[in-house]
Every structure is written in structure tokens, then in C-alpha cells.
């Protein structure tokens, strides 16, 4: 904008009193911003190129050339299918737990809690984000999984007619549901932090409009806060989903995987996820096309994540007129 104005000012007259030199600060800033923008594109392009060059041979490989990975599969697609399913399924389950909980916590912090408690709670939530995923994995495997087994048994006994809870209950508790709940705890901080920020940005005007109409606090939140925050909530959920899709260590440690496709949540036979599978298989994949197969699964994950984000953007933009941005 500045540069544009300078151009028009100097364009007309020669040696007029409005002439001026470009300021070095502006130049440096514009250059740095442009450089940063280009850099991120270059990195993304490099990663994509790596995935394509290394992954495509794996995707086209004959199972005989990659025995440790494709050993029991008819083709790459038979191999990656259950993994992709497991990745998306575990992440969606995690979001199912994390999103409502995050919205609740964020609303409590932004609109209900006394100011001091709100600040403290904010710190604690941020602290959750600082815990390394390996620690979540350890906690999941040693504490959480054994603790939920009685609940799983109960669910199976009383609600076993629902296909989700059917099958034989895992004795270790290391099921996809457990992994999803550990994932939920891990993505909770980011979703909560974003929701809290968006809730706090609700224009006071709109909150007062609702209250003046005789809305209770909850009705005010439903009328003014949540509709205003909807795009932000979706963005937060998508960031959380991105993290859940790519999460490796916790899932690799907690989940006892067997590479099948099933919606049953409580059994010992669970689909694995792409990142966890790469981490677990990489050590023994050091020859032939095995590594390329794993990188190929990485490419699939890349595409899945990209598709999920595109979908989220589409959802956010669909009701743009009503977003309150105008």
C-alpha cells in the first residue's frame, strides 16, 4: 500500500515536492516477508518431490520385491487401504472426544470462570501441549489402557448389540478406542486454545444484543458467541485433526495393531495408522523396495491430510455471507 502511494505520488510531476526515496525499513521488511513466503513454498515443494520420487516406485512395486511390508498383500493399495482407514478412523474418534470437550473448556475459560481461575486453567491446558508424545504413549500403555478395560467389558456386556462395541474385549485395553482417547488428550490443548481466543473475540455488541433481548448466559452463547466462532472452531478442529492424523509415537506404543479394517472399538484386532506403521516398520525395512513402500504410505497420508484441510476450508467458506466478517 505504501509503495503504491509513493508510485502515484512521484509518477506525475518531475522533481515535485512530493518526491521521496523509498525507505530502507520498508524495503527490508517487504523483502523478508516475501522471502519467508517463498521459503515455505519451497520447503513444501521439496517434501512433495521427495514423497513422489521415493514413494511412487513403492506404490508400483511388486509385492515380491518388498517382502517385509507388502509380504501378505496383493498390492500396495491393499496394504495402504487398512492403514489409511485406521488413521482417519482413529483421528475422527479422537476429534469426537476432543472437540466438545475443548469447546466446553474454552467456554468455561472465556465466559464462566472467574478471571483468576480462567488464567490458571489456561496455563494448565497449555502445559498439556508441552508434554512429549512419548510420555503420552507410556502413560497410555501402562496406566490408561489397563484402567479402561473394566469399562470396555461393561460396554461390551450391555451395549454389545451396537456393532461398535461388539466382538471380544481386548484384555490389555490397547484398542483403537484407547488410542483415540490418548490422541484426544493430545489434540485438546490446541483446539481449546484456538476456541478460547475466538470466543474472547466475540464482539461485545453482539453479546449485549442477545442479553438485551432477555437471553440467559447460555442463550447468549448460543445466539452470539458460537455462531460467530463457528469458523474458528472448525479451524481449531482441523488443526487438531492434522495433529491426530500425523501423530506417531503415542499410537505406535498404545495400539495393538493387526492391519485389518473394522469398526469394532474394543477388540484386540485393530487397524494400524500410517505414521505408527512407518515408525514400527522402518527398522526392518532396510532393503529392496520396502522403504519406498513406507514412503508411499506417507504420500497417501499427505494427500489425505490435504483433502481434509480442503474440506474444512470449503465448510468454512460455504456460509461466508453469514460469517460476520463484513
Amino acid at each position: 500500500m505504501m509503495i503504491l502511494m509513493d508510485d502515484t505520488a512521484t509518477g506525475g510531476r518531475s522533481a515535485g515536492s512530493f518526491q521521496g526515496k523509498p525507505r530502507p525499513g520498508d524495503r527490508v521488511f517487504a523483502g523478508t516477508a516475501l522471502g519467508a513466503g517463498i521459503l515455505i513454498l519451497v520447503i513444501l515443494a521439496a517434501v512433495t518431490a521427495f514423497l513422489l520420487i521415493q514413494g511412487v516406485p513403492g506404490m508400483l512395486a511388486d509385492p515380491a520385491d518388498a517382502p517385509t511390508t507388502l509380504g501378505q498383500s496383493a498390492s500396495f493399495w491393499h496394504y495402504v487401504g487398512p492403514l489409511a482407514f485406521g488413521t482417519v478412523w482413529a483421528s475422527l474418534l479422537a476429534l469426537l472426544f476432543a472437540v466438545p470437550l475443548s469447546i466446553g473448556i474454552a467456554l468455561f475459560i472465556s465466559h464462566y470462570a472467574p478471571r483468576k481461575l480462567a488464567a490458571l486453567l489456561g496455563y494448565v491446558i497449555d502445559l498439556l501441549a508441552a508434554v512429549p508424545s512419548v510420555v503420552y504413549g507410556l502413560w497410555g500403555i501402562t496406566v490408561f489402557a489397563p484402567a479402561v478395560v473394566p469399562i470396555y467389558t461393561w460396554l461390551n456386556a450391555h451395549l454389545g448389540w451396537i456393532p461398535l462395541f461388539a466382538g471380544t474385549v481386548s484384555v490389555t485395553g490397547r484398542t483403537i478406542l484407547t488410542a483415540a482417547m490418548v490422541l484426544a488428550v493430545m489434540v485438546l490443548p490446541i483446539i481449546t486454545a484456538i476456541c478460547r481466543e475466538v470466543f474472547l473475540q466475540t464482539p461485545r455488541l453482539h453479546e449485549e444484543a442477545a442479553l438485551a433481548l432477555g437471553a440467559t448466559r447460555w442463550e447468549m452463547i448460543r445466539m452470539a458467541v458460537l455462531p460467530f466462532a463457528r469458523p474458528g472452531i472448525i479451524s481449531g478442529a482441523m488443526l487438531g485433526l492434522g495433529r491426530a492424523l500425523g501423530e506417531t509415537m503415542a499410537v505406535a506404543m498404545v495400539l495393538s495393531a493387526s492391519g485389518i479394517v473394522t469398526f469394532q472399538l474394543l477388540t484386540a484386532a485393530n487397524p494400524s495408522t500410517i505414521p505408527a506403521n512407518i515408525a514400527l516398520k522402518f527398522g526392518e525395512a532396510g532393503y529392496g523396495l520396502n522403504v519406498n513402500v513406507l514412503i508411499g504410505t506417507g504420500l497417501v497420508l499427505f494427500v489425505v491430510t490435504f483433502a481434509v484441510n480442503a474440506l474444512a476450508r470449503w465448510i468454512v467458506n460455504r456460509r461466508k455471507d453469514f460469517s460476520g466478517a463484513n
Binding site: P203, L205, H206, E208, A209, A210, L211, A212, L213, G214, A215, T216, M223, A224, P227, F228, R230, R319, F322, S323, G324, A325, N326
Partner: peptide, 22 residues
């Protein structure tokens, strides 16, 4: 106070229709 406000309406300095509603 919620019941009070339902009987005593208010219009504010700046127009504040709910942007997410028709």
C-alpha cells in the same frame, strides 16, 4: 434480570444485528 430485559427492550449506539442470522 433476564425477565426484566424481556419486557424492557434496548437499542444500542451502534447497530448490532446478529451477523450470522438472516
Amino acid at each position: 434480570p433476564v425477565r426484566v430485559r424481556r419486557q424492557i427492550g434496548m437499542v444500542f449506539q451502534r447497530p448490532n444485528p446478529f451477523p450470522t442470522m438472516s
